[in-house]
Simulated assay, not measured.
Amino acid sequence: MEQPVFKRIVLKVSGEALSGQTGYGIDADTISSIAEQVKEVIALQVEVAIVVGGGNIWRGIAGSAKGIDRTTADYMGMLATVMNSLALQDALEQIDVPTRVQTSIAMQQIAEPYIRRRAVRHLEKGRVVIFAAGTGNPYFSTDTTAALRAAEIEAEVILMAKNKVDGVYSADPFKDATAEKYETLTFMEVLNKNLGVMDSTASSLCMDNDIQLIVFNITEEGNIKRVVLGEKIGTIVKGSVN
């Protein structure tokens, strides 16, 4: 049996990754592909928690820039993540992967409230846990949610799934042909070079709690499994270079 290098992971999926080639909404083929890749990892007896963004439906910062109150805009973004989480839950359960959605905002008719001990117990039983509605607070991104939940459930790594981008570059590779891909980085380098991998709050949380980050392309089939098995794809971000 193939041996994974991680026991418990947090998979961070951006909203844009769920939209496929369209850039907006939820693409059925894309979300089915992600679900199949998660199933491959579950088969390795790896415990999987997922944090989903909402940028394919609504961005709080963009809404705020158009005149909507920032707190209101951020709550709208949290609701977008719930929609994405329910879609991903449905895709997983259609292929017989037991899944629970836990929200930071109480929505008892559609999901469980986030309770750390319950989340850990689900993971131990082989269920995928999807954390929705961010942290439940405005002004915090889903990147910060991923870092916070990873620390709380004692995950070893955050797998940051990107759409079309296969790692961290010195500049936007679609706009700058001279952009160089980094194989490894430290969180301090990410912050000092303003690389935009994740926001400063999330980076600090990962650094302070010794949580590794791996940035990779999710659109290539089987990449989640490859990362979990220790293949060197994407960019690894750690607390130190050692």
Rank of each mutant, 00 (worst) to 15 (best):
I130M: 08
F131G: 04
F174C: 01
G136D: 05
K162W: 09
R121F: 10
Y114P: 05
E156F: 01
K181W: 01
K164A: 13
A161K: 03
T144Y: 15
I110A: 10
I153Q: 03
T135H: 11
D176L: 01
T178H: 14
S141G: 05
K164E: 10
K175I: 05
A177E: 14
E180P: 01
Y114E: 05
A111D: 00
P173I: 02
R121W: 13
N137V: 01
T135S: 15
D166Y: 02
F174T: 11
G167E: 03
A151H: 12
F131I: 14
E152W: 02
G136R: 04
R117S: 13
M160C: 13
T144W: 03
H122M: 03
K181Y: 05
S141H: 03
D166T: 06
H122E: 11
T145C: 10
Q109W: 00
A155P: 07
K181V: 06
A119W: 00
T145G: 02
G167T: 05
E156R: 00
A111L: 01
G126Q: 12
P138I: 07
V165N: 06
R149Y: 04
Q109Y: 01
T142D: 07
T142H: 11
E154G: 02
V128T: 14
A111M: 04
V168I: 09
P113S: 08
H122G: 04
P113K: 01
P113N: 07
F140W: 06
T178N: 14
F131M: 14
Q109N: 09
D176G: 03
I153R: 02
F174K: 15
